[in-house]
């Protein structure tokens, strides 16, 4: 694992982090109400953006770092699946799905003695 040091770390974060994200926000402001809500191009942008974030989510669940690295995959997938069931039963309230998934994970980790 690499860790950046000194002023270069801040330049790196400013360019690859701040500029890389705020660029889209500025374009978003400029597009403003000029962007047609019903256009097919915007639909494609939405799909690509969501798939990107979904890929990040999947990696965080399947290949976690730190403590969860030693936890079994079936426990992590089981927590998410149980949370999803609770989420849909609970009228798609995020808090219900999140609390259930985390509770299942915590119980599982406790039983396994992690």
């Amino acid at each position: 694992m690499t860790v950046l040091e000194g002023w270069w770390a801040y330049v790196f974060i400013a360019i690859a982090g701040w500029l890389a994200t705020d660029l889209w926000r500025w374009l978003g402001v400029l597009a403003g109400n000029r962007l047609r809500e019903d256009s097919e191009a915007l639909n494609w942008v939405r799909a690509v953006a969501t798939a990107l974030v979904a890929a990040v989510i999947a990696k965080l669940i399947l290949y976690p770092t730190g403590v969860l690295e030693q936890s079994p995959l079936w426990l992590r997938l089981g927590s998410v699946a149980t949370g999803a069931v609770a989420f849909f039963i609970g009228r798609q309230k995020p808090a219900i799905g999140i609390a259930t998934a985390i509770a299942v994970l915590a119980i599982g980790l406790h039983i396994l003695g992690v």
Binding site: A16, T21, L23, W24, A31, N33, L35, V45, A49, L52
Partner: peptide, 13 residues
């Protein structure tokens, strides 16, 4: 990073 942040544009817009 920038590819993961494209979604910010339609959100802001």
């Amino acid at each position: 990073v920038t590819l993961s942040s494209i979604r910010l544009m339609p959100m802001v817009a």
